[in-house]
Nucleic acid binder design. Structure first.
Lengths: 150, 150
DNA sequence: CCTTGACTTAAAGTTGACTTTAACTTCTAT
DNA sequence: ATAGAAGTTAAAGTCAACTTTAAGTCAAGG
């Protein structure tokens, strides 16, 4: 099955201009052309682009994704390098998830803070509340925000 | 305790120019100045900036963070609005974590794929492997990458 | 008093990832 | 054969979030 740029763009839910930009940046060296110069995308290209999408979601920059694509093009001699890349990316994403979970703690604290303030009609109440009065799990969060302890 | 911009920047691990930029963008309306025009940061400003940092980590844009800061400056009349904001942000971060976990599945698949390829010396082996031969949890991932089923 | 390091501003420059524009070509359907 | 949709390129424009530069001011120590 072959697709035009517009069809492939729709399948991936992005703009055709984005695919052209990726191509210009060297991310799509595998895309073939018709006689007249029209890009012909294959199902295997879809698979490639799903991986590009995945790497983008991990925050990887296009120039690093290009490096990966070029490793793939070089064939089986780069299997080790590609494995290393994904192992590194796995650690990276684990870190990101941990980071977001920490951020979530702060947000949970702030939700509690404003719920308490709403009840009282003023933020002065949660502000003045002693540590022992706040929910267990939120004490450390407030302390960190206030730069108490380290 | 008051701090100069350089000291506060160090405490937050960012460049002084970043704090000046935030100020210019209206994110630091609470920062006072000395006679001579030098910014004076307080401990309470540190707390503010930690929240800015937190909101940035959720991917919120500076202009939206500015809106929040301005809600805070308006006082207790905006408690509801601020609570709503954090509740929205909580849902947002939950979505982000779920998204990263999906991404992690793909990366796990790729790690398996390249480990298998390394053993075999070629990616042809994992490519040709029937669904039943791959680890339980990775079958659906490969199917999604290949646009089999939905 | 004077040096020196850290501060100030306004304005311009940078980076990454696109998007838009303009001029043109190819493909498909009648 | 031709119209119109969708493709092509190169180049310029956009956006967010900073960073850098230039020219100058403030503040603390000797």
């Amino acid at each position: 099955m072959v697709y035009t740029i517009g069809e492939m763009a729709k399948m991936l839910d992005l703009a055709p201009s984005t695919l052209r930009y990726y191509d210009k940046e060297g991310l799509l060296p595998f895309v073939e052309r018709s006689e007249g110069g029209i890009r012909l995308f294959r199902d295997s290209d879809y698979e490639f682009l799903k991986i590009v999408e995945c790497l983008k979601k991990t925050g990887m920059q296009l120039k690093d994704i290009r490096e990966f694509i070029h490793l793939v093009m070089e064939g089986d001699s780069t299997i080790e390098a590609r494995l290393a890349l994904f192992q590194k990316q796995r650690a990276e994403v684990e870190k990101q998830i941990a980071q977001l979970q920490e951020t979530m703690e702060v947000i949970r604290f702030k939700c509690w803070y404003y719920e308490t303030a709403r009840q009282a009609g003023t933020t002065a109440v949660p502000d003045a509340m002693p540590n022992e009065a706040l929910p267990e799990g939120l004490r450390a969060v407030r302390a960190r925000l206030r730069k108490e302890m380290e």
